[in-house]
Amino acid sequence: MMESISPAGTDAAAGTIEVRLNGRVRAVPAPLTVRQLLEHLELRPELVVVERNLQILDRAAYDRTEVLAGDALELVHFVGGG
């Protein structure tokens, strides 16, 4: 089930925006770049791949890519598998 993001969920005064992170709607501080988002989530950028609105982001673009309200972000990594 996809949760929908309402514009009302974005609280400019509180400095947060709502994004869909790994399939779930979450409020994150705004403004922030993809690199800052990973820092916020305590994830190591070299071990994570970010897909933003179905486009894989080059790691070199993390600093200049701003997370926008309503973005669908997938953060993936390698796990054990056969």
Partner: peptide
Amino acid sequence: TVAVRRVDLDRENQEGVLF
């Protein structure tokens, strides 16, 4: 071989296989 999966954001610093 390794699998590609979502990072589990609910578990604090869940370890990927590359640890």
